[in-house]
Amino acid sequence: MGKLLFWIVLIILVLFVARIAGRMAAARQSGAQAGKAKKPAGGQPQQPKPLESMVRCAHCGIHLPRSEALLQNGQTWCGPDHARLGPGKR
């Protein structure tokens, strides 16, 4: 019974260490890619995208960025189909 418990604990420990190592490698790789992407050819870092306000579809209630919304008759819609259907019942 003692040997079985030892092997179970050892396997769990090895899996835990492997999981941590995988996460560290993924974080290191994504950090390297982000560093490359932020420096354009001019050498100056890119400015972050400005925050955009979210609006709600008058039919289904989904929230979407204002730039992707359809504005008709003073209401916002997620697409032309919902604009055609009109306001939803809530």
Rank of each mutant, 00 (worst) to 15 (best):
L64F: 04
N73R: 07
S53K: 14
C57M: 11
Q47S: 10
P48E: 03
C57F: 07
G79A: 13
L51N: 14
R56H: 09
C78R: 01
C60N: 10
H63Q: 12
W77A: 03
I62G: 05
T76M: 12
A58R: 04
G61N: 12
W77M: 06
L71S: 09
Q46E: 05
V55G: 12
R56F: 10
R56Q: 15
H59K: 10
N73M: 05
Q72Y: 00
P80L: 11
A69E: 00
I62M: 08
G79W: 01
P65Y: 00
C60T: 11
G61I: 09
P80R: 08
L70W: 00
D81M: 13
K49S: 11
A58Y: 07
H63T: 12
A58L: 11
G79S: 05
K49T: 06
D81R: 11
R66K: 09
G61R: 09
P48I: 10
R56K: 15
P80T: 06
A69V: 02
A69W: 00
P50N: 14
P65A: 11
N73V: 04
K49I: 04
L71P: 06
P50E: 11
L71E: 11
R66M: 13
P80M: 13
S53R: 13
W77S: 00
I62Q: 13
Q75N: 08
H63G: 13
L71G: 07
S67C: 06
P48G: 10
L70H: 01
P65D: 03
P80G: 09
A58N: 07
M54V: 14
L51E: 15
P80K: 13
E68G: 13
C60W: 11
